[in-house]
Each structure stands twice: as C-alpha cells, then as structure tokens.
C-alpha cells in the first residue's frame, strides 16, 4: 500500500521535469474558484445590493469586523490579507469533503502560509515601532535573554504550521483508513457490489474531522495571525 504523503500528479516537461503533486493541483483549483468568485462578485456592483451581492457584502463585512475586533480600528488594512487567508484555508480544509486530498494536509502549504505570517509579523512590527525600537524588543526584559527571544520568535511559525498540518493530516489519515476498513468489511459479508458501509458510517467522521476541525482550524490560524501581528505592532 502506498503511504499517505502527497502523490505526484504529473511532471512539467521543463528543466528536466518538475514534479507537480496533487497538493499543488488542488491549490490551483481552489485559487481558480476564489478568483472566479472575486471576479463575478465585483463585476456588477449596485448601490442597493440584491441577491449575490448581498452575500458578498456579508462576507466582506464580517471579515472586516473580525479584523477590527481583534486587531483594532487602525489595522483595518490587514482585512484583505486575513480575509484571503481565511477563505483559502476554509476551502482547503473543506476539500476533504469532496473526497480529495486537502492542500493543508501537506506541510509545505501550511509552512508557506506560516512564513507569510511570520514575515508580516516582523515587517509590520519593525515598521510601526521603528527599526531601533523593534530590535530593542529582542533585548527585553534583560539583555542576556536575546537568544531566548530569538528562539521564541522562530518557534511561532513552526507551531502555527504544525498545528494546522497535524490536525488536517490526522483527519485525512483516519478517514483514509476508515474507508479502507469499511471496504473490506463490506467485502467480508459479501456486499462488494453494494458498499453499504461506506455510504453511511463515514458521515460522522467527515462531520468532525473535515467540517468541525477544518473550520475551527482555519479560524484559529487566522485569529492567531492577527493576534501575533497586532501584539508585535503595539
């Protein structure tokens, strides 16, 4: 049996073959969906919203108010980044409901997102405090704690990335094993032509691992990004 790692979907025929894993393909599909949604939603904007525009405005407003609540009025310009992050993570985590591999069940995706947050933390921290004040933050409360502070800061993206990755890959593996087990159970009682177990039993597991855990984890990732950035900026 092959493992639970990302599989190579195909190879790009340039530079001697660049392997493209299914994570990347799924990410492309999610990107296409989000871009299409953004284009469609902002095409015909009217003064008095109706139908589709109402939904879009509700999404944008709730993301804006979440950003203001968590980071403060003066940091509303983070709302586009946080909103994109949230919508991408939401779609990516719910991707398992379609029976496909979640892009977030790959350490490369989550680590990439965490590095983006890490850069935002330090860039905006240095911007709002000034370079001197930002560097001084590493020598507080006592100067000899400098290596400890650096290590503490470096551990932030790692813990961010690993908690999301761990949750998603755990759910993915459990659901994969469950489907395997249920298939052999159906075969055992001679129902291979009518897989009755696979139809009903996994619903609860999908509910917990994909829906509940996925939504919660994407929310937590965004929330923690906001908290860390605003902590570094204040």
């Amino acid at each position: 049996m092959e493992g639970f790692g990302p599989r190579i979907a195909f190879e790009l025929p340039i530079f001697g073959g660049i392997p493209i894993s299914d994570t990347v393909v799924n990410t492309w599909i999610i990107m296409a969906i989000l871009i299409a949604f953004a284009v469609l939603a902002s095409k015909k904007l009217e003064k008095i919203p109706k139908g589709f525009q109402n939904v879009t405005e509700a999404i944008v407003e709730s993301l804006n108010s979440l950003t203001v609540q968590t980071m403060g009025e003066d940091k509303l310009f983070f709302a586009p980044y946080m909103g994109t992050l949230f919508l991408f993570l939401l779609l990516a985590n719910l991707w398992g409901l379609l029976g496909l591999r979640q892009p977030t069940a790959d350490i490369n995706t989550t680590f990439g997102l965490a590095i983006m947050t890490f850069i935002a933390i330090h860039f905006f921290g240095a911007k709002s405090k000034g370079i001197g004040g930002y560097l001084k933050g590493f020598f507080e409360p006592l100067p000899f704690l400098f290596p400890l502070n650096v290590m503490g800061e470096l551990s932030t993206p790692i813990s961010l990335a690993f908690r999301l990755f761990g949750n998603m890959v755990g759910g993915f593996i459990i659901i994969g094993l469950l489907y395997g087990g249920l298939t052999s159970l159906s075969n055992m009682i001679g129902l291979s032509f009518f897989p009755i177990f696979q139809a009903g039993v996994p619903i609860i597991f999908h509910l917990y691992f994909d829906l509940f855990s996925g939504v919660l984890q994407s929310f937590i990732f965004v929330m923690l990004s906001m908290v860390f950035i605003s902590m570094q900026m204040d």
Binding site: T70, S159, I220
Partner: peptide
C-alpha cells in the same frame, strides 16, 4: 470576538510549549 480570540490562544498554548 474576545471569547473566540481567547479560545484560539488557549488551544495554541500546548503547541507553543512543545515546539521550542
């Protein structure tokens, strides 16, 4: 919003202890 923020921070405590 405050409750959700604190909830996500609490759930972060475990990982933030293990990683360093």
């Amino acid at each position: 919003g405050h409750i959700l923020e604190n909830l996500s921070l609490v759930s972060y405590l475990g990982v933030s202890m293990i990683v360093p």
